[in-house]
């Protein structure tokens, strides 16, 4: 209960929604229900995505600054589903060509900082890097490392707000608050469609509780008759007008990958 109040306080400072302060005082039981409902929604998202084992995709990032100049990054992304701990991801850069073959391996952990290695092919060097770089920009894009990291239910506390129509879809609107102090956010507001439990939009609030970024997700397709994956993610910085489009193609599921394909040693033979 104490933990919840703290969460609510956080939220209050951030949103300034007086309505909620009234609710906290008058109907704490309802809020506790909302907390459980919010969490249940994300548990359902997690449950629906279980069992994919592994998938890979090609991702093209188009970075735009406020004057409309563009820059492109292309990478191949492979994910291995975690059984007891977090997922493992391998990102291999293709463009710009100067950094092609550079690979970033992440072992996500639910209870501690992620382990991360960077492979620099020109030097043949595998460099262990700090997994605490959550808030840092990913290759200059509007996506930070934590935006792209595998999401675990335990990474956040939740609170269901209301139902809302978003992009003609009947959605849940849920606030989630990162537990990790290294996170660049105080909270995120997430829209999830009720029918398929897919994230449609996220609003990110920074440490100063201002709306910093907005992510819209579109072009969902269903794979193996179960797993929904997006075709496009658009992150728009609300403060400086910069944006990044991420276009995902070539999804391939269940190539039969194992932990050995995501070991530090495997980085040496990455292509």
């Amino acid at each position: 209960m104490r933990k919840f109040n703290l969460t609510a306080l956080h939220y209050l400072i951030g949103s300034g929604l007086l309505l909620f302060s009234l609710l906290v005082q008058s109907e704490p039981a309802l809020l506790q229900d909302n907390e459980q409902k919010g969490r249940a929604i994300f548990e359902e998202i997690d449950r629906r995505d279980l069992g994919f084992n592994d998938f890979s995709s090609r991702q093209e990032m188009v970075l735009r600054n406020k004057s409309g100049q563009e820059s492109r990054r292309i990478m191949d992304n492979t994910v291995l589903e975690g059984d007891t701990d977090g997922d493992k991801t391998l990102i291999v850069f293709r463009e710009p060509k100067r950094i092609r073959g550079t690979a970033l391996l992440t072992h996500a952990h639910s209870q501690r900082d992620d382990d991360q290695w960077l492979y620099l092919p020109a030097l043949g060097r595998i460099k262990r890097i700090s997994g605490a770089s959550k808030a840092g920009s990913f290759v200059g894009s509007e996506f930070s490392y934590e935006d792209l990291a595998p999401q675990e239910v335990e990474d956040y506390t939740y609170e269901y707000i209301e139902d809302e129509i978003y992009a003609e879809l009947d959605c849940f609107k849920v606030v989630r608050i990162p537990k990790d102090e290294d996170s660049g956010y105080t909270r995120q507001i997430v829209w999830i469609d009720k029918k398929e439990y897919r994230i449609q939009q996220i609003e990110f609030y920074d440490r100063k509780h201002t709306l910093i970024k907005k992510l819209t997700v579109s072009g969902y397709q269903k794979y193996l008759d179960q797993y929904w994956r997006p075709g496009r993610l658009t992150m728009i910085n609300q403060q400086d007008g910069k944006s990044t489009d991420m276009i995902a193609t070539n999804y391939i599921f269940r190539q039969g990958l194992t932990g050995a394909d995501f070991s530090e040693n495997s980085l040496r033979r990455v292509r």
Partner: peptide, 12 residues
Amino acid sequence: YNIYSIFATTQD
């Protein structure tokens, strides 16, 4: 020692 997002920018 790495400082991410210095000066409230995306620079590291």
